[in-house]
Lab assay of single mutants.
Amino acid sequence: EPLWIRPDAPSRCTWQLGRPASESPHHHTAPAKSPKILPDILKKIGDTPMVRINKIGKKFGLKCELLAKCEFFNAGGSVKDRISLRMIEDAERDGTLKPGDTIIEPTSGNTGIGLALAAAVRGYRCIIVMPEKMSSEKVDVLRALGAEIVRTPTNARFDSPESHVGVAWRLKNEIPNSHILDQYRNASNPLAHYDTTADEILQQCDGKLDMLVASVGTGGTITGIARKLKEKCPGCRIIGVDPEGSILAEPEELNQTEQTTYEVEGIGYDFIPTVLDRTVVDKWFKSNDEEAFTFARMLIAQEGLLCGGSAGSTVAVAVKAAQELQEGQRCVVILPDSVRNYMTKFLSDRWMLQKGFLKEEDLTEKKPWWWHLRVQELGLSAPLTVLPTITCGHTIEILREKGFDQAPVVDEAGVILGMVTLGNMLSSLLAGKVQPSDQVGKVIYKQFKQIRLTDTLGRLSHILEMDHFALVVHEQIQYHSTGKSSQRQMVFGVVTAIDLLNFVAAQERDQK
């Protein structure tokens, strides 16, 4: 057995438009009618409502009807409940999964919650491996369901041993009777949507819809739904939504950006999952974080739909894509998950301010006199920076000697690579993860907040409520011999709460 199987392995699926269902090699399930009293909570997966979006479509000038398939009504709160249950049931049916076995899954959280929910009911041990950027709410729900959680670096490539995929496979090879159901490759993922989600949409719309818009992560949702719609409703256009920084969209030119990270969760990847059939997507749109969270908040405030950030991405694209539809036509959007997962993220004004998705003037509360002053007023001194090749031991000596707790790590040209902190280095040394002679590049981390000289002290204040420091950066445009230009970030300084307090105190003292 291989040590790991690539999540982007070539698909062996034989589905073709027009091929009889009787030739399918898979076990198919028909939607079942729910009894009045459910035998367990797993029976509350599927049969989610279709809700008309009344205000947002009109606000953006849509002539067509805009409908939302509300997947956050599933038992675990997301569309991923469907595939989690289906993968477990299919693994039980073919004898792969037996009582007492362990389920391991690399996930952005929602599939993990679905699997942990099913594992709690069915009696399996469950280990979820997820990147650090995923919300604390997801972690809390997983723990409450009895799952064990392993976190991995957000910026690790999918084929790196440190990625959530790599760590999951390492655990599988170490733990007896453990299984990775593997949402990236498992046919049960798109089949769950082909058999149930798509049929529900067709039934709820009486077979009449002209466009379907869905955000894409593993691709199982859009693949399964689109294949069924292509068979039953061939005139329906399928629109895929991919965040900026991901590479799922086609044509490839759409993916060209210097951005590699994004805040919206559960969609987009740096590889093409095996289950994603991009041939059934008629057109791709890219979405960005700001519009995703703005539209998610709009869905909550104006439509009462308590959905997550990827739902915002989907609707932001839908109001663009559906401009081509006329009166009497219908566009369906998939709202994948609930706001429950993001209470401390985009639902929080403070978080939105820190990330730059909300401006101070958007909030009406009274601010102190210094709130709208610029960061450049602080008069920061030149920063202490270190090269990635310097040793951890030497870096600790320098920081202690100069009285700093942290320093930016830059390359020879001064471009920011990340940050090192005294606390992080000492804990890594004590844990045996690094040696004093190791290069400081081994303990770089990139989960820090950046701020510009033109940003306000109010925004800085919000950042420092949650973080010990902020890195002050400025952009530099560099022209190359080819005539092309590129933008790079340079370090201007490091600012802490002490710097802000000293500035405010000094100004008030001078005024007296």
Results as ranks from 00 to 15, higher is better:
386 V>G: 06
422 L>K: 08
353 L>F: 14
351 W>G: 02
420 V>S: 13
333 V>K: 02
504 V>Y: 11
291 E>W: 07
241 V>F: 02
501 L>K: 06
403 G>N: 02
426 L>I: 10
303 E>C: 02
297 R>N: 02
453 L>P: 13
450 Q>D: 14
294 T>H: 15
370 W>M: 02
463 I>K: 15
302 Q>D: 12
442 K>Y: 11
381 S>Q: 09
503 F>S: 07
364 T>A: 05
452 R>Y: 11
481 S>N: 11
367 K>E: 11
511 Q>T: 14
432 G>E: 10
395 T>K: 13
484 K>C: 15
422 L>W: 08
387 L>V: 09
294 T>I: 11
424 N>S: 02
302 Q>M: 12
380 L>I: 10
356 G>D: 04
438 D>R: 15
452 R>L: 14
344 T>Y: 05
262 Y>L: 05
341 N>R: 02
298 M>V: 13
301 A>R: 15
357 F>W: 08
251 P>N: 04
457 L>E: 02
305 L>G: 02
409 V>D: 04
441 G>D: 12
313 S>F: 02
405 D>W: 14
252 E>S: 09
453 L>E: 14
425 M>Y: 10
366 K>E: 11
427 S>C: 09
265 E>I: 02
411 D>R: 11
448 F>D: 02
488 R>I: 15
327 E>Q: 11
309 G>R: 02
359 K>D: 02
436 P>L: 12
418 G>N: 08
398 I>N: 11
467 D>E: 13
322 A>N: 07
425 M>L: 12
482 T>P: 12
313 S>L: 02
454 T>D: 02
296 A>P: 02
453 L>G: 05
442 K>A: 11
432 G>V: 12
383 P>A: 08
412 E>G: 11
407 A>F: 11
419 M>V: 12
325 L>P: 02
362 D>G: 11
370 W>Q: 15
320 K>C: 08
432 G>D: 14
419 M>E: 05
412 E>L: 11
306 L>F: 06
263 E>S: 04
302 Q>N: 15
312 G>R: 07
409 V>A: 15
411 D>H: 08
300 I>E: 06
501 L>W: 06
503 F>G: 02
444 I>V: 12
245 G>F: 02
324 E>R: 02
433 K>C: 13
361 E>R: 13
452 R>S: 08
283 K>F: 09
409 V>K: 02
296 A>F: 06
352 M>K: 08
285 F>A: 14
414 G>Y: 09
269 Y>G: 02
333 V>Y: 07
376 Q>V: 06
386 V>D: 02
318 A>D: 02
394 H>I: 02
462 H>F: 14
486 S>F: 11
345 K>L: 02
271 F>H: 02
320 K>G: 09
436 P>W: 09
418 G>L: 04
368 P>M: 07
305 L>A: 02
397 E>A: 13
311 A>N: 02
242 D>F: 05
402 K>C: 09
415 V>K: 02
439 Q>R: 09
482 T>W: 06
358 L>I: 02
506 A>Y: 08
432 G>Q: 02
344 T>I: 02
469 F>D: 07
503 F>W: 15
487 Q>N: 13
367 K>Y: 09
323 Q>P: 02
366 K>S: 10
268 G>R: 02
485 S>H: 02
511 Q>V: 08
303 E>L: 07
255 N>Y: 07
410 V>N: 11
270 D>G: 06
303 E>V: 02
470 A>G: 07
259 Q>R: 14
355 K>S: 07
343 M>W: 02
360 E>A: 12
412 E>C: 12
487 Q>K: 13
269 Y>M: 02
369 W>P: 14
241 V>L: 02
417 L>I: 14
475 E>V: 14
335 L>K: 02
510 D>T: 10
345 K>T: 07
440 V>Y: 06
449 K>T: 02
349 D>W: 02
267 I>V: 09
253 E>L: 08
335 L>T: 02
482 T>L: 11
461 S>I: 02
346 F>T: 04
405 D>G: 06
284 W>A: 02
291 E>N: 08
383 P>H: 02
408 P>N: 02
261 T>C: 09
325 L>H: 02
286 K>G: 02
353 L>G: 06
345 K>H: 04
243 P>W: 02
400 R>T: 02
475 E>A: 02
429 L>Y: 07
456 T>I: 08
281 V>F: 08
442 K>M: 13
498 I>W: 10
364 T>H: 10
437 S>P: 05
387 L>T: 14
503 F>C: 02
388 P>C: 05
446 K>Q: 15
295 F>L: 10
332 V>C: 13
334 I>C: 06
449 K>G: 05
342 Y>A: 02
503 F>V: 13
372 H>D: 14
396 I>H: 12
278 R>Y: 06
377 E>Y: 02
281 V>M: 13
418 G>S: 11
465 E>G: 13
435 Q>T: 15
408 P>H: 02
475 E>C: 14
407 A>S: 14
400 R>C: 14
301 A>L: 11
244 E>F: 07
347 L>T: 02
351 W>M: 06
256 Q>R: 13
287 S>R: 02
499 D>I: 02
286 K>W: 04
287 S>D: 02
326 Q>Y: 15
379 G>V: 13
282 D>S: 13
352 M>Y: 08
352 M>A: 04
346 F>V: 02
288 N>W: 11
274 T>H: 02
364 T>L: 09
336 P>I: 06
463 I>F: 14
336 P>Y: 05
307 C>I: 07
348 S>F: 06
440 V>Q: 02
416 I>R: 07
356 G>T: 07
322 A>G: 05
352 M>W: 02
432 G>S: 05
281 V>Y: 08
332 V>P: 02
293 F>M: 02
381 S>N: 07
298 M>I: 11
435 Q>M: 12
325 L>V: 02
322 A>S: 15
264 V>I: 11
341 N>D: 02
422 L>P: 05
337 D>I: 05
367 K>R: 12
375 V>R: 08
432 G>H: 14
305 L>V: 12
295 F>M: 14
314 T>L: 02
471 L>K: 06
356 G>S: 06
428 S>A: 09
348 S>N: 11
359 K>W: 08
413 A>P: 10
470 A>K: 02
510 D>A: 02
443 V>T: 15
492 F>A: 15
354 Q>S: 15
256 Q>P: 06
257 T>R: 08
336 P>V: 05
333 V>C: 08
406 Q>M: 06
387 L>F: 13
461 S>L: 11
414 G>L: 09
419 M>R: 09
433 K>Y: 09
359 K>G: 02
419 M>D: 12
297 R>H: 02
398 I>C: 02
268 G>C: 04
356 G>W: 06
441 G>S: 10
384 L>I: 04
308 G>Y: 02
395 T>M: 07
362 D>S: 04
307 C>D: 02
274 T>W: 02
455 D>Y: 11
427 S>E: 04
315 V>S: 11
489 Q>F: 14
399 L>D: 02
270 D>A: 02
443 V>C: 07
358 L>W: 02
455 D>V: 11
372 H>E: 14
430 L>R: 13
319 V>C: 15
465 E>A: 09
503 F>L: 13
278 R>H: 02
331 C>Q: 06
428 S>C: 14
382 A>E: 08
437 S>V: 12
295 F>I: 08
500 L>C: 13
464 L>Q: 15
500 L>D: 02
385 T>N: 15
478 Q>K: 14
245 G>M: 02
240 G>A: 14
463 I>H: 15
399 L>G: 02
477 I>V: 09
296 A>N: 06
359 K>T: 14
383 P>M: 14
318 A>L: 04
270 D>W: 02
464 L>T: 07
258 E>V: 10
319 V>R: 02
461 S>G: 14
414 G>I: 11
424 N>Y: 04
321 A>R: 09
435 Q>I: 12
413 A>C: 12
398 I>G: 13
267 I>N: 06
393 G>C: 14
281 V>Q: 02
256 Q>G: 11
507 Q>W: 11
339 V>F: 06
450 Q>M: 14
456 T>W: 14
319 V>I: 10
491 V>R: 06
468 H>G: 02
492 F>N: 15
327 E>R: 13
